[in-house]
Computed example of a mutant assay.
Amino acid sequence: MHFTNTNPKLELCVIRAEGSLLFDDSGKKYIDFICGRGTANLGHCHPIIVKAIQQQASRMIHFTNEIRMPIQEEYVNRLGEILPEFDTVFLTNSGAETIEAAIKISRLHTGRTEILSFSNGFHGRSMGALSATDGQKIRAPFYPLVPDFTICEPTIESVQENISSNTAAIIIEPIQGAGGVIIFPYKFLKSLRDIASKKGIMLVFDECQCGFGRTGNYFAFQKFEITPDILVASKTICGGIPAGGMFTRLIDFPEDLHGGTFCGNPLACAAGIGVLDVFISENILTKVA
């Protein structure tokens, strides 16, 4: 058996990582500028995060969300401390999965179907996330995509032209990652907030890449002082363990309308607590700022 062709392999064979360094099978050392596609904000194998994972792995790796788990409750409470703007979180396993949850809850809450996103934006490769993502190369082979998605130019004029009475959500990376580290102006994001509030549209900030410390705040929306209705996080949220979170204000899924087997699993929650411990103990945000 062999790997699919989705990620062609370089000749480099990495067997160990520590901090900002990688080590290949011959012992040669490299500086890691890939950062695990954005997951290694705090470096590889930080001892606090490793210890948290090891301790939890010896107790319980996985269980079901129908039963209370103290580690899960502790993690959600810790997230609430850094995100007092939101009152509900749905824990996931990836950024794309989190975007899918945001799309579903936006349509559910508003009773509308249309989703607006922006050129150069990247939100994932599952069918809903891909429908919000720009780029013909990765979109065209999978047509037809999910209906009622429109990719706008990053101008208020384009947004106003495409908004209708059936618009459920506007999805945007406040700082685009894969699109080229494009920082949207405050005035533009503030106008989106005003339009969404006026028209009852969900404003969704995708902070899978720009979140968790990269701006000197935990999230870019805090830097801009513009709070979305829905916040999407992933990548480094659990230090490299597959995880994500959809944070909402005043809206939630009814029982049994969404879920996932591995969502909020104990190992990821322990790693997430470890990540937050590092941010505090090492004064990460102040250093980044």
Rank of each mutant, 00 (worst) to 15 (best):
A243V: 11
G244E: 01
K137E: 15
P147K: 11
G111Q: 11
M1F: 12
L10A: 10
F188V: 06
G200V: 06
E153A: 13
E207K: 15
D87C: 02
A289T: 07
R193H: 14
R112G: 10
H44F: 13
Q54H: 09
F247D: 12
L21H: 14
L108F: 12
N5S: 11
I67K: 14
F279D: 06
E207R: 12
N162F: 12
A271D: 01
V89Q: 00
N7W: 06
T155A: 02
I182E: 00
N283Q: 04
I284K: 07
L203C: 08
N77A: 13
G274S: 13
L192D: 06
A102S: 02
L42W: 08
L116H: 10
M202S: 07
S119G: 05
C45G: 00
L79F: 04
G239K: 06
A169T: 06
C269H: 04
I241F: 02
E81G: 00
C238H: 00
L285Q: 02
E85R: 00
I53L: 11
I251G: 09
I251T: 09
G239E: 08
H109L: 01
K104F: 00
I280A: 13
N162E: 10
F188M: 08
I226C: 00
L91K: 03
R16C: 03
P254W: 02
I280D: 07
K9M: 13
D229T: 12
G19I: 12
I99S: 03
V181I: 12
D32Q: 12
N5R: 11
F253V: 01
I226G: 00
E85A: 06
I284D: 04
I151W: 03
A168I: 06
N77L: 09
F3S: 09
G211M: 10
F247S: 13
I163W: 02
H123M: 05
T227F: 01
L192G: 09
G239H: 07
Q160Y: 02
L257V: 13
T6C: 02
G239Y: 10
P70K: 03
T248V: 07
Q136S: 15
T6W: 04
L189N: 07
A233N: 05
G213M: 04
R37I: 12
Q56F: 15
K287C: 01
I241M: 04
L79E: 03
R16K: 11
A178S: 12
